[in-house]
Structures are given as structure tokens and as C-alpha cells.
């Protein structure tokens, strides 16, 4: 089970607004899902290395050469509130 307080804490970490109804319903579903995935705790994997990428790629580098990027006006054309060639946001609190 996962408490209402925990659900609100996680929602806040994710910057996700949830209604009271969603807190109850999604919280209940999360509890059931977590109970089911707890099964992987049965395995003793203390000495097993973790896999982050199935092809085991690490540190892929490319030559540091200048290349064309999206023009600023174009990049801003899809923004909700472009102001003076910048992304505008409400007061930072």
C-alpha cells in the first residue's frame, strides 16, 4: 500500500497536478501495481551488474564540428508564449 501523503509527495516531485479523486484512485492502482512488481525482490542479484543499455554502449562521441541548428525564430514559433526572442514563463516562485 502507498499512503495518501506519499502519493501527494510523489505528485509534487513530478510537478503533476492531481485532483482529490485522482489521488485516491491512482494511489490505489499504484499500490496494486507495486505489490505485483515487488516480486523482483525475491531474486538474489547482489553480484549482478545492472544493464542500462542493451548494446552496452558507453560514451559515444562525435567530432566537435559546427553545424546548422534551427533558427531561433523557428524554434520559438511553437512556443506558448514567446517574448523578445525568449521563452516567457510566469513568475518563478
Amino acid at each position: 500500500m502507498i499512503s495518501e501523503e506519499q502519493v501527494r509527495h510523489v505528485a509534487n516531485l513530478a510537478r503533476l497536478g492531481l485532483t482529490d479523486e485522482e489521488i485516491g484512485r491512482i494511489g490505489g492502482q499504484l499500490g496494486a501495481i507495486l505489490e505485483s512488481i515487488d516480486k523482483i525482490g525475491e531474486l538474489d542479484l547482489a553480484d549482478v551488474p545492472p544493464t542500462a543499455n542493451p548494446l552496452h554502449l558507453t560514451n559515444v562521441l562525435r567530432p566537435d564540428e559546427p553545424r546548422g541548428e534551427l533558427p531561433r525564430e523557428e524554434a520559438l514559433s511553437v512556443a506558448p508564449d514567446p517574448v523578445d526572442a525568449l521563452f516567457a514563463v510566469p513568475r518563478i516562485d
Binding site: 524554434a75 512556443a79 506558448p80 508564449d81 514563463v89 510566469p90 513568475r91 518563478i92 516562485d93
Partner: peptide
């Protein structure tokens, strides 16, 4: 809600995200 897609207006930036 900053660079593309939907934005729902709010007073402060965190409430806007949420």
C-alpha cells in the same frame, strides 16, 4: 508548458507546470 505544446496559465511557474 514552456517551449511547445499546451500551457495552462497560472500565477507562478510551479503552479503552471502542475
Amino acid at each position: 508548458g514552456v517551449r511547445y505544446g499546451l500551457r495552462v496559465s497560472a500565477d507562478g511557474v510551479h503552479e503552471m507546470y502542475r
